Computed example of a mutant assay.
Amino acid sequence: MNNKDILKQYDEIKRKKLTKEERIEIYNRFDGRCGYCGEKIDIKDMQVDHIVALRVGGTDTLDNMICSCRSCNHYKSTYTLEKFEKQLQEIPNRLIRDSAIFRIGLKYGLIEIKDKKVEFYFKKI
């Protein structure tokens, strides 16, 4: 058994199966929006993320769970909120470095980089 399989087993053992009522409670707590980006999502598309990942010591309790869209949940992975925020802030620099299409879009004024700090939706509500 490799490390990935061991971690998967660990997650499955520790992860709580949410009831329909608990999912609705989490969804309503964030007004039907992703707690990270603020995008409106249908409850059927909602993913529940652990704010502090189980793998790094987070609890499997409702107060550590957040309504999340698929892309934010996937990108955050097991990052801390601070690391997630830092990774998001670095996206323009990585796109400039890694994407010729992005650089062309910038040259022609089709894309604009904003000097903006990442603000998570859940911190605003």
Results as ranks from 00 to 15, higher is better:
Ala100Thr: 12
Arg103Val: 00
Cys69Asp: 05
Lys123Phe: 08
Arg33Gln: 06
Phe122Ile: 04
Gly105Leu: 10
Glu25Ala: 09
Lys117Pro: 02
Asp60Ser: 14
Lys20Tyr: 11
Gly38Asp: 08
Glu39Phe: 01
Phe102Asn: 07
Val48Met: 02
Glu12Thr: 08
Asp45Cys: 01
Glu22Pro: 08
Ile104Val: 13
Asp98Tyr: 11
Thr59Arg: 01
Lys116Gly: 03
Glu12Ile: 03
Arg94Asp: 10
Lys107His: 02
Asn93Phe: 12
Tyr36Glu: 04
Met65Trp: 03
Lys124Gly: 06
Tyr75Met: 01
Thr80Trp: 05
Lys4Ala: 15
Gln87Cys: 14
Thr78Asn: 13
Met65Cys: 11
Glu90Arg: 12
Ile24Val: 14
Thr80Ser: 15
Glu90Cys: 06
Arg23Gln: 09
Glu90Leu: 12
Ile111Ala: 11
Ile13Ser: 08
Asn93Cys: 07
Lys76Tyr: 04
Asn2Asp: 15
Leu18Ile: 10
Ala100Pro: 10
Met65Thr: 09
Ile24Glu: 13
Asp5Pro: 00
Gly38Glu: 02
Arg70Val: 01
Leu7Pro: 01
Ile125Met: 14
Ile66Met: 13
Asp63Asn: 13
Cys37Trp: 02
Lys16Tyr: 04
Glu119Val: 14
Cys34Met: 03
Val56Trp: 01
Arg29Leu: 11
Arg70Asp: 11
Leu106Ile: 12
Pro92His: 07
Thr78Cys: 06
Glu22Leu: 12
Lys86Asp: 14
Lys114Asn: 05
Gly58Leu: 05
Arg29Asp: 11
Arg70Phe: 09
Val48Ile: 15
Cys37Leu: 06
Ile101Phe: 04
Ile96Lys: 15
Tyr108Trp: 06
Thr61Gln: 11
Glu85Ala: 12
Leu54Arg: 10
Tyr10Ser: 06
Ile125Ser: 02
Asn3Phe: 09
Thr59Gln: 06
Leu54Pro: 01
Phe84Asn: 06
Ile96Arg: 14
Cys67Lys: 11
Ser68Val: 01
Val52Met: 00
Ser99Asp: 14
Asp63Ala: 01
Glu112Thr: 15
Gly57Ala: 10
Val52Phe: 00
Lys117Glu: 14
Asn28Ser: 13
Ile91Asn: 03
Glu119Arg: 15
Tyr79Glu: 06
Val56Glu: 02
Arg55Val: 01
Ile51Arg: 01
Phe122His: 15
Asp60Ile: 06
Glu12Phe: 02
Gly32Glu: 04
Leu54Met: 04
Gly35Asn: 07
Asn2Gly: 14
Asp45Leu: 06
Asn2Gln: 11
Val52Leu: 03
Tyr108Ala: 00
Gln9Ile: 14
Arg97Ala: 11
Ile104Ala: 03
Phe30Tyr: 15
Tyr10Asp: 03
Lys8Ala: 07
Leu110Lys: 08
Ala53Gln: 08
Tyr121Ile: 02
Ser71Lys: 13
Ser77Ile: 04
Asn93Pro: 02
Asn64Glu: 03
Ser71Leu: 11
Asp31Cys: 07
Phe102Pro: 01
Val56Ala: 00
Leu81Gly: 07
His74Gly: 01
His50Trp: 08
Lys86Glu: 15
Thr78Lys: 13
Lys4Gln: 15
Asn73Ile: 08
Gln87Met: 05
Leu95Gln: 08
Cys37Gly: 09
Gly35His: 04
